[in-house]
Design a protein around this nucleic acid. Structure first.
Lengths: 128, 128
DNA sequence: ATACAGCCTGGAGTATACTCCAATGTCAAG
DNA sequence: CTTGACATTGGAGTATACTCCAGGCTGTAT
């Protein structure tokens, strides 16, 4: 399978696939390429990319995903349980939600506090 | 008042103050500087900076804040009501919260679904 | 033979919001 | 008169996750 096909199947652009390779999220050695120097992908790689996609959609950064995949490769995932990583991310997400809800409340309060001209109200708040 | 004093009073670093000036969030003409070429800030400017701080903490980007302040300067804030801008931001914040809550739910579900070895579960989800 | 799609590389650009730096100038105190 | 704190500038660097591009090779169809 070559890169365009993988792009279609995973929803990543070819640029992104090459970018992930550069970051070390996926591994494609030069030996594994055909005579034409085109990248050859197999099902395992596609599955790895789909897993990356899943994990990304759960709020993990590429850096975190890389760490996670490296742990798995080195079979260290028993030491650092995936559950703990999920738990940590869950906590971070909860904090983000909390921060946004605080903003939400303040925006609501501000909107209630003033009729149309919030800015002068905000000014008073800022100056007071 | 010179830049260091303003930094203390607003909580922005001097670098940030100069950066905001470069972005056009605050205006300090060269004519207003002393003979030594140091920036001179007055109370109005400090208040403007405090307002920027408030607005920033409400989730507005510097770009949005700049637009808001420009509308105010041109006295166009009657045409585009601040309330509407707040409402729009509120909606955006709510969407962000929603997205994070979706992630939260999925993380919870995943955590419940597997005991310790979430990754293989995720793989199955990704592949299936 | 030639057009055209698809692949390759390295490197630059995008967006956001700073942060740091070097080289240099200014000012007040001892 | 020198030291130290504070100010100036332009420009580079940081983090994240791509995205785009030029210049050039490969493969297939007509």
């Amino acid at each position: 399978m070559q890169i365009g096909e993988v792009a279609k199947r995973t929803g990543f652009s070819t640029d992104t696939l090459r970018y992930y390779e550069k970051l070390g999220l996926i591994h494609l050695s030069r030996q594994q390429r055909g005579e034409n120097n085109y990248r050859q992908y197999d099902e395992d790689l596609v599955n790895r990319l789909l897993l990356i996609k899943q994990t990304k959609s759960l709020g993990f950064t590429l850096k975190e995903i890389k760490l996670l995949l490296e742990l798995e490769e080195e079979e260290l995932l028993e030491c650092v349980s995936v559950g703990e990583l999920m738990q940590a991310k869950l906590k971070a997400i909860e904090q983000q939600i909390q921060a946004l809800q605080d903003i939400q409340n303040r925006l609501h309060a501000l909107k209630d506090l003033c009729e149309g001209d919030c800015l002068s109200t905000m000014k008073q708040v800022a100056e007071g």
